[in-house]
């Protein structure tokens, strides 16, 4: 989102910057200060709304987003919105899509959305089933890398060595112990579905473009949006975008697209930074820099970043671990 010297700002006009954006997720919601997920959801659903002229139905898994947006008697959504359970959003969305087909309303597009807990863990079965059947559903995962709604417990999306309420580091334990983390975009790719993309709230034009593409395709689609959480990650509320940006810049959150199981595009990192810069900005990694920090901790994460950079061809070079 740079303001080029040659291009007029107008050329970068996003749905989010338009004065009449849909505000599908409106004010008065109970998301925390600086909530990345609230922003990510509004950006994504607004983009889909604009692209379809408002013909969308949103199915929401249980989680932060669901709890803070629809709490009787206050509903923050300006789209038809259906919440059933924690682990079944993809299946509910399948049902919605089937019903629309039955009614001859397939011009109405179906979106299922959930956090990383419902996507990576409890809802993985339903998600995989939806992918497998290639149901006409766009699934959007808002990834804040832990169970935030219940108080920051480890999820399948929690990065290695991160501190959560269930991975509290001590003398003999360095934090969440998965080796490389569960990679749901790759799992989605393995299903061969027509479209997969990762996106970030630090790059709204890119996020909108990916949602726009995704909503136009029929069949199962998966968009994975990185949404930092100030409370769970331990950084000032004002730095949500900055943290999201650093995650991209260090290679830990690759931005790419895949079609029918094959990677087709990736976003080059403009100024590659060491993962340390990203990690240091968050308290969940503070123990990696303390007196008792193991020597190789940062290296573990740098290696993940490096392999992302290679795998997704994010940059000309990598940084030494």
């Amino acid at each position: 989102m740079s303001y080029s010297t040659l291009k007029d700002v107008e050329e970068f006009t996003t749905v989010q910057s338009s004065h009449d954006r849909p505000n599908t997720l409106t004010s008065g919601h109970r998301g925390c200060q600086g909530c990345g997920e609230a922003l990510g959801a509004r950006c994504a659903i607004d983009a889909a709304h604009r692209e379809t002229n408002g013909k969308i139905i949103v199915v929401n898994a249980t989680g932060c987003l669901e709890v803070f947006t629809c709490y009787f008697p206050e509903n923050s959504w300006n789209v038809p919105w259906l919440h059933s359970l924690f682990g079944n959003a993809p299946a509910v969305a399948t049902g919605v899509a089937a019903a629309l087909r039955r009614q001859g309303r397939d011009d109405v597009r179906v979106i299922a959305q959930g956090g990383d807990g419902s996507t990576f863990d409890i809802g993985m079965g339903c998600l995989s089933g939806m992918f497998d059947r290639n149901d006409d559903v766009l699934y959007i995962c808002y990834d804040n890398q832990a169970y935030m709604n219940t108080g920051v417990q480890r999820s399948g999306a929690t990065p290695p060595l991160a501190r959560t309420a269930t991975t509290l580091p001590n003398k003999s334990y360095m934090g969440s112990d998965s080796q490389t983390g569960k990679n749901v975009p790759k799992i989605a790719m393995a299903h061969g579905i027509p479209y997969i993309a990762t996106a970030s709230i630090a790059n709204i034009p890119d996020l909108e473009e990916k949602v726009r593409r995704a909503i136009g395709i029929h069949g199962a689609r998966y968009v994975h949006i990185h949404v930092p959480c100030p409370l769970g990650w331990g950084y000032p509320t004002s730095e949500t975008i900055k943290i999201a940006r650093l995650a991209i810049q260090c290679g830990l959150f690759p931005l790419f697209e895949a079609e029918h199981g094959k990677q087709v595009r990736s976003t080059q990192i403009e100024d590659l930074i060491p993962v340390e810069e990203y990690l240091r900005s968050q308290k969940r990694f503070a123990h990696l820099f303390g007196k008792n920090a193991p020597a190789d901790a940062i290296g573990v994460l740098q290696n993940i970043a490096n392999s992302n950079i290679e795998l997704y061809r994010l940059s000309g070079g990598i940084l030494n671990a």
Partner: peptide, 18 residues
Amino acid sequence: ESEMAALSVAIGSQATGV
């Protein structure tokens, strides 16, 4: 892919008016 999905799909379709 499961009974959870079976009833969930029905929840989705019934909620959409079918």
